[in-house]
Simulated scan of single mutants.
Amino acid sequence: MTRPFTGWHMLATMVGFFGIVIAVNVLMAREAIHTFSGEVVENSYVASQRFNHWLADARSQQAAGWSATIGADPDRHLTVTVLQNGHAVPVSSVSVEADQPLDTILPTQPPMRALGAGRFQSAKPIGSGRWRVRVQAKAGVRMLRFEQDIAV
């Protein structure tokens, strides 16, 4: 003998369904809040005022033929080679800031050692994963800026 589907069964089904939906939404919202701070720049107004200047600098740098290869060697040391028109060129200094965009850990600024002819390598290895690497290099009086995502 089968039992009839009653209003109580429908209530239990609806409470169960919406309970699962709400629980998943709460879990996803909690994870989103704890894994991404939401801060991309410190002051969005100041960044918006400087944006056109940054864009003009990038275009000027690209027009002058400056570029960089950014990567990691098999031992997970960051490597940076500064190029002008495809040829490695010596630069006086390089600073690097690397962060993992999908994590809330603070960016790391590994010390870089010169290998010669515009080539630099980090003194210590970085962790595995996806990294956003920002490089600042000084060539004469010109400050060069590069950014690249790498996977280690």
Rank of each mutant, 00 (worst) to 15 (best):
T35E: 13
L83Y: 07
V40M: 08
A68C: 06
L83F: 10
G86Q: 13
G65L: 03
I33S: 15
E39L: 10
F51V: 06
G86A: 07
L78T: 01
H77Q: 08
A68H: 01
R76Q: 10
S48G: 13
V80W: 00
T79N: 11
G65Y: 02
G65Q: 02
G38L: 02
N85Y: 09
V41S: 07
F51L: 14
Q61G: 03
R59V: 06
V46Q: 12
S44V: 11
R50A: 14
S93L: 06
V94L: 02
A32S: 13
A63K: 14
G86R: 14
G65S: 04
N52S: 15
Q62A: 15
T35D: 12
Q62H: 13
N52F: 08
V94S: 00
D57T: 08
H87K: 13
Q62E: 13
A47C: 04
Q84W: 01
S37R: 10
L55G: 06
V41H: 08
A47D: 11
G38K: 04
V89K: 07
R76W: 03
D57S: 13
V82E: 00
S37I: 08
S92K: 12
H34W: 09
L83P: 01
Q84V: 03
T69A: 12
S67G: 06
Q62P: 04
H87F: 09
Q61I: 02
P74D: 04
I33F: 14
H77F: 05
R50D: 10
G38I: 05
T35I: 06
G71H: 08
L83E: 03
A68N: 01
V89W: 02
V46L: 11
V41D: 08
V94P: 00
H53G: 14
G38Q: 05
N43S: 12
A32F: 09
L78G: 00
N43I: 05
S48I: 02
F51C: 06
V80P: 00
P74V: 02
N43C: 10
D75A: 15
N43T: 11
W54G: 12
Q62M: 10
E42C: 05
A88P: 11
A32Q: 15
W54R: 13
G65I: 03
E39N: 08
R76G: 03
S92E: 14
S48N: 14
I70L: 01
V94T: 03
A64L: 09
V41C: 06
A88C: 11
V89H: 04
A64Q: 12
N52C: 04
T81Y: 06
I70N: 00
S92Y: 03
G38Y: 00
S93Y: 12
N85R: 15
T79G: 12
P74F: 06
L83V: 10
E42K: 15
A47M: 11
I70S: 00
H77K: 09
W54E: 07
D57M: 14
Q84K: 14
W54K: 10
G86T: 07
V94R: 01
A56D: 14
S93N: 14
G65E: 01
A58Q: 09
G38D: 08
G71M: 01
H87L: 09
N52Q: 15
V91Y: 00
F51T: 10
S67Q: 07
V82I: 11
T69E: 13
Q62G: 10
L83T: 05
A56C: 05
Q49P: 05
F36W: 13
